[in-house]
Design a protein around this nucleic acid. Sequence first.
DNA 1: TGTCATTAGGGTAATTTGGGAC
DNA 2: ACTGTCCAAATTACCCTAATGA
Lengths: 62, 62
Amino acid sequence: MEAADRLLTPGEVAALFRVDPKTVTRWAAAGRISSIRTPGGHRRFRESEVRALLEGEAALNA
Amino acid sequence: MEAADRLLTPGEVAALFRVDPKTVTRWAAAGRISSIRTPGGHRRFRESEVRALLEGEAALNA
DNA sequence: TGTCATTAGGGTAATTTGGGAC
DNA sequence: ACTGTCCAAATTACCCTAATGA
């Protein structure tokens, strides 16, 4: 189940979705996307999940 | 309890958290993560603790 | 012994967080 | 209901040189 997938920064995820990093933070806070926190409190996102979200929407639209 | 206390280098821990190796060093200096010092002063981290940090945060986010 | 990638250290930008408001 | 922007504070990233590790 758990793959050693890479982690993405909020800025990277925001760039992929073409939204503001703040919006990504809101998604994480709302539980719409799972996040990992560094000991310092910063968030990291699973690339596999982000990609599934991106491609998933596209698939549903086809 | 099967603590696979394999030791990880700052670079390896940094890769897992998707942060800079210097950041891992800062965590150790701040006491956010326990570290072992080599006689030469370099730091090593317990894999079990690092993994608990990663997976622990993720599990809370179900 | 020598090589070479990694790490420590200190200092300065850039990013992220959190909150509330529009 | 959702997003972008403002703010201040904290965390993280990148710059360098010297030492350590394998």
